[in-house]
Each structure stands twice: as C-alpha cells, then as structure tokens.
Simulated assay, not measured.
Amino acid sequence: MLSILQAAGWPIIPLVLCSIVALALVVERFLSLRQARVAPVTLVDEVLTVARTNVPPADTIDKLAANSILGLVLAQGLRAVAADNRISEANLRTAVEAAGRDAVHRMETYLNALGTIASAAPLMGLLGTVIGMIEIFGSTSTGGGATGANPADLAHGISVALYNTAFGLIVAIPSLMFYRHFRAKVESYTLAMEQASERLVQHLLRLTSTRR
C-alpha cells in the first residue's frame, strides 16, 4: 500500500483523506439510522396504549422523547396537548410538523458530506491524472523528445495518472452507493413517522374533543 501511495504521488493525499472521512461517515450513519434508534416498530402502539384515556405525565413523555427520533416527534404532540388540553387541530399539527422537520434534519446529518465526497472524488482523481500527464510531457520535453525522456520520470507520471484515476473511482463508487442507500432509508423512515404522527394526532384530537 505504501509503495502504491508513493507511486501515485501527492495528488492522492486528498483522496486518501476523503476515503477515511467517507468510511467514518458510513459507519456513523449505519449506527445512527438503525431502526431501534429512529423508528421502533411497536413504539406508536405503545404510546397509544399509554395515552388511551389521558395524556401521560411529563416524566413519561421525557422518556419517550429520549427513546428514539420518532419518540421525539410523538412526545412533542403529547407535550402540546399537555400544555393546552383544548388545543386546536391546526396548532397540534403545527407542533408535530415542526418536530417532524427537526427529525428529518437529524436523519440527514452528514449525508450531504457523503454525497459531496462521492461527487468530488472522481474530479480529484481526474486532477491527479492531469498532473501525471503534465509530468509525462515535462519529462519528454526535458529529454528532447520521447526517445530521450527519462524512463523513471515517464513511469512516475504514468503511475500518478493511472493510480489517481483508479483511486478516485474506488472512493466515489462506494460513497455514492451508501449515499443512495441512506437516502432511501431516510425517506422510508420519514413516511413511517408521518403515518405514526397522523395516528397520534387523530387519537389526541379525540381526547381533546371529549374535554370540550
């Protein structure tokens, strides 16, 4: 590996750094976007059971908010009703939607950075290729033509050109695949949260209507 890095020259250093950052982001997103941390399957049913006849106490709502990202959204709806047991449907939906936007923002954390790496890595590889070609032509002109060029300089220029192109693609392709994968997961979780929030809103509206 060290010999490959030496043959690729200094243009590969930004690509190596990008690969390390991309790997760290992929691992972090895999851990953060687990279903248990985002939208547990049975959470909304458990919340509806606890809030069947009344809004649960504040400590229970706080535990719900700390449970997961979906729990944070549901807890915001419960807090809105706890603060105003005659809250209007528009105000309740506004509170839940605000929490939902915050939840989507949390799920999308670092995804733009991963997408940027996927887009920029091929360009960095292309930059290394151009630099390698410049070195090749430079050695040719210095040597007074292709036959008089320094073979070591030619070999180094070719190595820089080819290794950087290959490494740029090696970094970009997995980064793009994981970026698309995480985007799809975020969209799936967002839909699940919208459905769960709607169920809770309808339930809370029924609770508040009985108190009027």
Rank of each mutant, 00 (worst) to 15 (best):
R180I: 04
S159R: 08
L162Y: 05
G125Y: 06
F178C: 12
E135C: 04
T142M: 14
T129N: 06
V186H: 02
A149Y: 06
I134C: 08
L176N: 10
P122V: 05
F137I: 06
Y189V: 03
A120C: 10
A161D: 03
L204R: 06
F182E: 07
T165A: 14
L204T: 05
D153Q: 13
A161Y: 01
A149W: 03
L169P: 00
A118R: 06
S119V: 13
F182M: 00
E135P: 00
L191V: 13
G125W: 06
E198G: 10
G138D: 07
E135F: 06
G143D: 13
A196I: 09
V186I: 12
L204A: 06
E135S: 15
L126S: 03
Q195L: 14
V171R: 01
K185R: 13
L126T: 07
A184L: 11
G145C: 07
N164W: 00
T142F: 09
N164T: 09
A196F: 05
M133L: 15
T147Q: 15
Y179W: 11
T190L: 00
A172D: 04
G148M: 13
I131L: 15
V130F: 05
H181W: 12
I173E: 00
T147W: 10
L204E: 05
S197A: 14
S119P: 08
A161C: 03
R183E: 15
A192M: 14
E187N: 13
M133I: 15
K185S: 08
Y189P: 05
M193G: 03
T142V: 10
Y189F: 15
T165Q: 06
V201Q: 03
S141Q: 13
F137C: 05
Y179M: 04
P151H: 02
S141M: 12
Q202A: 07
G157S: 04
M133N: 10
S197F: 03
F178M: 12
G143M: 12
I131D: 06
I136Y: 10
A172F: 01
S159Q: 03
F178E: 09
L204D: 05
Y163S: 10
I131V: 15
N164I: 01
V160L: 02
I134Y: 08
I131W: 13
V160T: 11
A166D: 02
A152K: 11
G157N: 04
S119G: 14
E135Y: 07
L176M: 13
F182K: 02
V160S: 01
A161G: 02
Q195H: 14
R183P: 02
T142I: 09
L191H: 11
N150P: 07
G157I: 04
V130S: 07
T147H: 11
A149E: 10
H156M: 09
S175Q: 10
T140H: 00
D153H: 11
L127A: 12
G143Y: 12
H203V: 08
G168T: 05
K185I: 07
R199N: 02
F178R: 08
L154D: 01
F167L: 11
G168Q: 03
K185N: 05
A155W: 01
P151W: 01
H203I: 04
G132A: 07
